[in-house]
Design a binder for these strands. Sequence first.
DNA 1: GAGAATCATTAACCGGGTTAACATTCTAAC
DNA 2: GTTAGAATGTTAACCCGGTTAATGATTCTC
Lengths: 225, 225
Amino acid sequence: MTGEQGLRERKRQRTHDAISAAAISLFVERGFDRVSVAEVAAAAEVSKPTLFKYFSTKEDLVLHRIADHRGESARVVRGRRPGEAPLAALRRHFLDGLDRHDPVTGLNDDPRVLAYHGMVFSTPSLAARVAGHAAAEEAALADALDDAAGTRRDERGRPEPGARPDGLTGRLAAAQIVAAQRVLARDNWRRLTEGCTAARAHPEAVAAADHAFTLLDAGLAPYRD
Amino acid sequence: MTGEQGLRERKRQRTHDAISAAAISLFVERGFDRVSVAEVAAAAEVSKPTLFKYFSTKEDLVLHRIADHRGESARVVRGRRPGEAPLAALRRHFLDGLDRHDPVTGLNDDPRVLAYHGMVFSTPSLAARVAGHAAAEEAALADALDDAAGTRRDERGRPEPGARPDGLTGRLAAAQIVAAQRVLARDNWRRLTEGCTAARAHPEAVAAADHAFTLLDAGLAPYRD
DNA sequence: GAGAATCATTAACCGGGTTAACATTCTAAC
DNA sequence: GTTAGAATGTTAACCCGGTTAATGATTCTC
């Protein structure tokens, strides 16, 4: 197995995790803007330039977890079951996330996760970066949707008349799907911050997701199979 | 007329405009990240603290124009014609914008406007701030849509059964509308950067907008009147 | 014209992020 | 083993965005 990449790699990983843990702990405790990167570096027992070799910006100290999900929607579409519509695959994936209490769905009531989300949403520079991540997600999903429309061909290998990979429809659909997921996640998170447990909120979250995807589906006829 | 608010006000306005003009000119010429605010202040013949009394961040030097459109979508919905559906009013307003070659529709081929947009889109920190502005726009529009749904009542003043101001539907609709407008504007801008004139691109832009709003309409049945 | 309020300036500071020069440590080849 | 050398770490200094203090200059008001 290639799991052990030598001592160097392991040390690097440990330093990475130590910095991240120190950062999130301090940020959650005192607020993102009231902790300097110098303090984070000191808490992690590294120097400031070293910290910036591991995380290129202060925001990345917090958002590298979210960044790990980069292109997830696009991957779901590309890896969908044969014959399954892209939107159906995305709906199924989101509902699976709710069942798993995946933090990206907002339906996770672990206090640490709630505190993490609260910090992100209440810090403008972090919220802005999250929005930027959504834009990238959108672009990747648009490509995947256009590919899906382009590969939906008849027997002769020509695209069907209804399938028009003009790029615009894909971008519109991607924007609306990403927007819907964001609104759903934020709504779930809001419910949990009001004291509801994830288990109790689950049915409403499922209903809301079904509602949202049904609205999407009605508005995305070109991608219905 | 209250236009003359004294010498002080006029001077202030002139300083404001001088700083903005110097900033955008320098930024377009050399790129946002390769011009320091100290240079902008020097070009506008003011000191750095003075500059920051007029514009609270470097990004605001560029984005105060866009910020002036704050809440436009919500205003359109609240000021719609009697009996007009919110989405119909937004569609009409967007098409009007295309006819007027309003820069917010992306369909303005003035070289200065194109350069301005190019600078904004190619500068991550500016693009992020624009996304943040879109989020605020979204929230305001969501409120307006929920109000519209709430005020759509029967003769006795009670909300109709179909009108459910649960907040979620409004946020979903607002997110999708704002997303669609953003995609449309960016698509128009892309066409113009490829050398097309605004006049030549106008028919396609109208068709794209109609396409997008039709998709939205099909997916936003609860807000159809 | 004098006093009060406003507005500008200089100079210094803080925090995020980068750079350069130097020291350390793991790896690899002899 | 020893050693060359690539990675990686450290310190110290710097740049830039943004803020604050003390001070000085204008404009409004009376």
